[in-house]
């Protein structure tokens, strides 16, 4: 299994959770706009800091299992991490919140 296929598995999981949260919690355009902005910021931060981290030799990749596409020193597969985190975390946050009852302020 390549790094890309594994990344797609976890990315798909995050997408499913986000779709479920969006449907169950009726998350609107505004929620998605803010979440998308957050993911874009995470992608920029990843592009900067992941390059620093690879340069610092914090981890090493197995070249044989990469697509070979890189942004600087960073394999493109690594960008699945911020996207997955950006989708998964706010969605789980929404799903774990109890739905407000009719007596609570809306």
């Amino acid at each position: 299994m390549t790094y890309l296929s594994l990344a797609l598995v976890f990315l798909a999981l995050a997408v499913v959770v986000a779709v479920v949260a969006s449907w169950r919690r009726r998350l609107g355009l505004r929620w998605w706009a803010i979440t998308t902005s957050m993911i874009l910021v995470l992608l920029v931060l990843t592009a900067v800091f992941d390059n620093v981290m690879v340069a610092a030799d914090l981890f090493r990749y197995n070249e044989e299992l990469l697509t070979g596409w890189r942004l600087g020193l960073v394999p493109v597969e690594d960008f699945a991490w911020p996207v997955a985190a950006g989708l998964l975390l706010p969605s789980v946050w929404e799903l774990l919140h109890p739905v407000p009852g009719p007596r609570e302020r809306s």
């Binding site: 790094y3 610092a56 030799d57 914090l58 981890f59 090493r60 990749y61 197995n62 299992l65 990469l66």
Partner: peptide
């Protein structure tokens, strides 16, 4: 990913 040998720890002095 580690089990599939996609990446491993580096040798950074940091």
């Amino acid at each position: 990913a580690i089990a599939a040998r996609h990446y491993g720890a580096g040798q950074s002095a940091a």
